Structure formats: C-alpha cells, structure tokens
Deep mutational scan, measured.
Amino acid sequence: SELMNSSKLIRMLEEDGWRLVRVTGSAHHFKHPKKPGLVTVPHPKKDLPIGTVKSIQKSAGL
C-alpha cells in the first residue's frame, strides 16, 4: 500500500492556503481562511497510510 510523508501532505495543505493554528502532541491542526472546518494531520510521520491521506485531503477539499 502507498504511504505518504506527513511533511509532504502539510506542504500540499499550505499551498492550498491552510495555516497551522494549533499543535496538540503530534496532532497539527490547520484552518483555512475561506474553507470550513479544521483539518488535523499527525506529524511528524514518515508513513501515513494512503487512506488517512485521502481522508485528510477530502476534509481539506483538495
């Protein structure tokens, strides 16, 4: 199965306009000026399962 580095996923979010608002432990929480909701990324993780990545991307509207 495909894995993604959390840094790469965070870069994709930031390029889309998401900004880090809070860190709780290894959970990084992002908000967007125009899009609704809060997106949480486990970080640092070298090997996020593709299912997790897809669900984060979906929440972020990517």
Rank of each mutant, 00 (worst) to 15 (best):
S1K: 07
S1N: 14
S1W: 03
S1P: 10
S1V: 13
E2F: 09
E2R: 06
E2N: 10
E2H: 11
E2K: 07
E2Q: 09
E2C: 12
L3D: 10
L3R: 12
L3H: 11
M4G: 08
M4K: 07
M4L: 08
M4Y: 10
M4N: 08
M4V: 08
M4W: 15
N5I: 14
N5A: 13
N5R: 06
N5P: 15
S6Y: 04
S6T: 04
S7C: 13
S7T: 14
S7V: 09
S7N: 09
K8E: 14
K8P: 03
K8F: 15
L9T: 02
L9D: 01
L9W: 03
L9Y: 02
L9G: 01
L9S: 01
I10P: 00
I10D: 01
I10G: 01
R11S: 12
R11I: 09
R11W: 10
R11C: 10
M12H: 06
M12V: 09
L13N: 00
L13H: 00
L13W: 01
L13T: 00
E14H: 10
E15Q: 11
E15C: 12
E15H: 10
D16G: 06
D16N: 07
D16K: 04
G17H: 04
G17S: 04
G17T: 01
W18I: 00
W18N: 00
W18D: 00
W18M: 00
W18G: 00
R19A: 08
R19K: 12
R19F: 15
L20V: 09
L20N: 04
L20A: 07
L20D: 01
L20R: 09
L20F: 04
L20E: 04
R22L: 11
V23W: 09
V23F: 06
V23E: 08
V23H: 06
T24Q: 10
T24K: 10
S26V: 12
S26E: 14
S26L: 14
S26C: 12
S26Y: 12
S26R: 13
A27G: 07
A27M: 14
H28T: 05
H28C: 05
H28L: 06
H28N: 09
H29G: 06
H29L: 13
H29M: 15
H29R: 10
F30A: 00
F30C: 01
F30H: 01
K31M: 12
K31D: 09
K31G: 07
K31E: 09
H32Q: 01
H32K: 02
H32V: 00
H32E: 00
P33Y: 09
P33R: 09
P33S: 08
K34W: 13
K34T: 14
K34P: 00
K34H: 12
K35C: 03
K35Q: 03
K35N: 03
K35S: 03
K35L: 03
K35G: 02
K35F: 03
P36L: 08
P36Y: 09
P36V: 08
P36Q: 11
P36W: 07
G37D: 05
G37P: 03
G37S: 05
G37T: 05
G37H: 06
G37M: 04
L38G: 06
L38R: 09
L38H: 08
L38K: 07
L38Q: 08
L38P: 04
L38T: 13
V39P: 02
V39G: 01
T40S: 14
T40L: 08
T40M: 13
V41E: 00
V41S: 00
P42A: 05
P42E: 07
H43E: 02
H43G: 03
H43C: 03
H43P: 02
H43V: 02
H43R: 03
P44R: 04
P44A: 04
P44L: 04
P44F: 04
K45V: 15
K45R: 14
K45N: 12
K46V: 13
K46A: 15
K46F: 14
K46P: 15
K46S: 15
D47K: 12
D47W: 13
D47A: 14
D47C: 14
D47F: 15
D47P: 06
L48K: 02
L48M: 07
L48C: 02
L48A: 02
P49F: 05
P49S: 14
P49L: 05
P49H: 06
I50R: 08
I50F: 10
I50Q: 10
G51M: 10
G51I: 09
G51A: 14
G51Q: 13
T52E: 08
V53A: 05
V53D: 02
V53F: 04
V53R: 04
K54F: 04
K54M: 07
K54G: 05
K54L: 08
S55I: 08
I56V: 07
I56G: 01
I56E: 02
I56F: 01
I56A: 02
I56D: 02
Q57P: 01
Q57N: 05
Q57R: 10
Q57H: 07
K58W: 06
K58H: 13
K58Q: 15
K58P: 02
S59H: 11
S59E: 10
S59G: 07
A60Q: 01
A60L: 04
A60K: 01
A60R: 01
G61Y: 03
G61P: 01
G61S: 05
G61D: 06
G61K: 05
G61L: 04
G61N: 06
L62D: 03
L62E: 03
L62R: 03
L62G: 04
L62P: 02
